[in-house]
């Protein structure tokens, strides 16, 4: 049994309109030190297998094919026991 934590973020050179709106709201609230806000996605997947290498290989494919869109997003993950 493994648990994967997947983080999908907007690529650095791609504008994040939601992040910009949140940043503006934070400034309105008085948090003037906030320089930049980027909004991403966090996903948790559990694997019912004992084969860690297999799980990791599959996770890599899942990120490439579905969980992230490589045109506009980056991804990284952690696999835990």
């Amino acid at each position: 049994m493994f648990k994967a934590k997947v983080y999908v973020t907007t690529k650095a050179n791609v504008l994040d309109p939601q992040g910009a709106a949140v940043q503006q709201a934070l400034h309105t609230m008085g948090y003037s030190a906030v320089d930049d806000v980027r909004i991403g996605k966090y996903m948790e997947l559990t694997f019912d297998t004992t084969d860690r290498a297999q799980a990791e290989a599959e996770l890599e494919q899942m990120c490439k094919k579905l969980l992230a869109n490589p045109v506009v997003e980056d991804y990284r993950y952690e696999l835990e026991d």
Binding site: V14, L15, P17, Q18, A21, N69, V71, V72
Partner: peptide, 17 residues
């Protein structure tokens, strides 16, 4: 079509939200 790779690029949230 862009997600399927049949057309290049991607469509993101409108800048004005």
């Amino acid at each position: 079509l862009t997600e399927a790779g049949l057309l290049p690029g991607a469509l993101r949230r409108n800048t004005g939200l």
